[in-house]
């Protein structure tokens, strides 16, 4: 019973094929990572999965529903949430307000309630917001304005936004990007903990983290899947070594 599968997913820009015939298979409650050198097509794949870009051909099945043609705003209500590689928050709002907006996003009508006060509408998000605050460790900073948080904290809130939607699957786009070395364990611990409740699909270029925390790894190269397996299999795969040769050989 996979939660997310892609069937020959292809995305081309004119003649150029950014992603070709990718078949992904993500099992529930696992941490599945997609890695690959620059230009491997990770980001394009991510955009197709989140609905930001339309596929050229192929299909995406999420929770046994075909979602290939749904826009990005339709996917979150099905239980699929995402984070952004470049922090994307409501910077003038507090942490709690950010999470409230996130939590209400899965309902198709709550955001349109224009006659009852916002305070009464957000009441129903309390549980989801508390869960996100707790999981990301923001309990004591809930009233801080998002723009005033440190970069590392903003990265955490970035993941918290997706969590507040109480999704089945969470898509994380390089959650450690731009983070200091000291802050990285904070995120990797969080991501590891998440698989208790939900499924995580992680796009990442930091090989070290991926090998450490993933259940399954898909390595991409030139828009195609190069190899797939457990961290141990990937670590010892000759093709992966070649693909990364001279580049990021952090597994050494």
């Amino acid at each position: 019973m996979s939660i997310l599968t892609t069937n020959r997913l292809t995305k081309s820009y004119g003649e150029f094929k950014a992603v070709t015939d990718v078949n992904l298979d993500v099992q529930p409650n696992t941490l599945h990572a997609v890695i690959g050198p620059n230009g491997a097509g990770k980001t394009t794949l991510f955009h197709c999965l989140t609905g930001v870009q339309r596929l050229t051909s192929g299909r995406i099945l999420f929770d046994n529903k075909e979602i290939s043609k749904l826009g990005p705003e339709k996917r979150s209500s099905l239980g699929m949430s995402r984070s952004f590689q470049v922090t994307s928050l409501f910077l003038e709002m507090t942490v709690r307000e950010n999470l409230q907006i996130a939590a209400l996003g899965v309902s198709s009508i709550d955001g349109f309630r224009f006659w009852s006060s916002s305070a009464s509408t957000v009441k129903k998000t309390a549980a989801a917001v508390d869960y996100a605050l707790e999981t990301t460790g923001f309990e004591n900073r809930a009233e801080t304005i998002a723009g005033d948080l440190s970069h590392g904290q903003q990265r955490m809130l970035e993941v918290g936004m997706a969590l507040a939607q109480q999704p089945k699957l969470i898509l994380l786009d390089e959650p450690t990007s731009g983070m200091g070395v000291d802050d990285i364990p904070m995120i990797s611990d969080l991501v590891r903990r998440l698989t208790k409740d939900i499924t995580v699909l992680l796009i990442e270029h930091n090989m070290g983290i991926v090998l450490e925390i993933s259940d399954k790894i898909t390595v991409m190269q030139l828009g195609q899947i190069l190899v797939e397996g457990t961290p141990n299999q990937i670590k010892n795969d000759q093709r992966v070594r070649e693909a990364y040769l001279g580049g990021e050989t952090e597994d050494a």
């Binding site: 990005p72 952004f84 994307s88 409501f90 907006i101 996003g105 349109f112």
Partner: peptide, 17 residues
Amino acid sequence: RTLLAIKQNEERATALG
């Protein structure tokens, strides 16, 4: 409040549903 959120970050608001 949602309008303000959209004004601040339209891309995120779309991604949130």
